[in-house]
């Protein structure tokens, strides 16, 4: 992984068809910290993620990873800089096997040019086998060891979600955006995913997660921010000691558009 950095969202707004879906949001997601984002449906949480990943252009404001400016860059470039994302509905390559899916994540695109392909397999097979080993490991971490040779499209919804997460492990991100990771997963699988996210945070990754499951939020998050109607309406630090953290310390409260 590249060196840890925090993700800074600086006065970001997003307009879609004249509606301001994200309104002047400023927040820092520090490296090594798991931040939860909660809020009602339509609050703009996923839209905020879209702006960070570059899928939606910010109408105003800037997103930075460390000192690097992310806004304005194409999504694939942002991904290369170390921003990984788990989508609400799993995204994967249907015609590749589960193993190949994760292998693709472990590789960085070396030997994928058309010119190198003419010389393959003389060139690049070593990187391939290293990536394959790593991919196999990640699949085991997610409990998908037996499904490696199945086509990704033949997996169940929950397995596909776990597959996406295995890919994220392969990418070794600096910042991880999880959009409702526990939705559709069994309790065990959800714990596995969140546990692995925690260990990524321990390695310095800035983990951000959108969740409706309050239990998951209180168990796995260090900080929680709340969004409503596109605005950031509150944030608090969760004390690690007690699960019943709502009575815990109030760090700071932001309302409306104040920076």
């Amino acid at each position: 992984m590249l060196e840890p950095s925090s993700m800074t969202v600086d006065q970001v707004s997003l307009d879609i068809s004249g509606v301001r879906v994200v309104s002047n949001v400023s927040v820092v997601f520090p490296a090594g910290v798991v931040t939860g984002i909660i809020g009602p449906n339509g609050a703009g949480k996923t839209s905020l993620f879209n702006v960070i990943s570059g899928l939606a252009p910010a109408s105003h404001g800037e997103v930075r990873l460390g000192n690097l400016r992310l806004t304005g860059q194409p999504p694939f470039q942002i991904a290369r800089l170390g921003v990984a994302r788990l989508f609400q509905t799993p995204h994967f390559f249907a015609t590749l096997t589960a193993l190949a899916n994760v292998q693709l994540a472990c590789l960085r695109g070396e030997s994928e040019s058309w010119a190198t392909s003419l010389l393959w397999p003389l060139v690049g097979s070593r990187a391939e086998s290293v990536a394959r080993e790593e991919a196999t490991r990640h699949l085991s971490q997610l409990g998908l060891a037996k499904s490696g040779d199945m086509l990704a499209s033949d997996l169940s919804f929950g397995q596909q979600k776990l597959l996406s997460f295995a890919g994220i492990l392969g990418v070794r991100p600096r910042c991880l955006l999880l959009d409702e990771p526990t939705a559709g997963l069994s309790r065990d699988a959800a714990d596995r995913v969140l546990g692995l996210s925690r260990s990524l945070a321990r390695e310095g990754c800035a983990v951000v997660l959108i969740e409706h499951n309050r239990n998951a939020v209180s168990r796995f998050c260090d900080t929680v921010v709340e969004m409503e109607r596109g605005r950031l309406v509150g944030s608090r630090v969760i004390s690690a000691a007690t699960p019943d953290s709502r009575a815990g310390s109030e760090c700071s409260s932001h309302t409306g558009g104040s920076a």
Binding site: R85, A94, T95, L107, W120, G124, V171
Partner: peptide, 26 residues
Amino acid sequence: QVRRSPFGRVLAAVRDDELAASALGR
């Protein structure tokens, strides 16, 4: 040769799900 190579695989990936391929930095 193209179809079987890593280049072919990234083509298939981009075809199957451009968003996911983008998310992997391609």
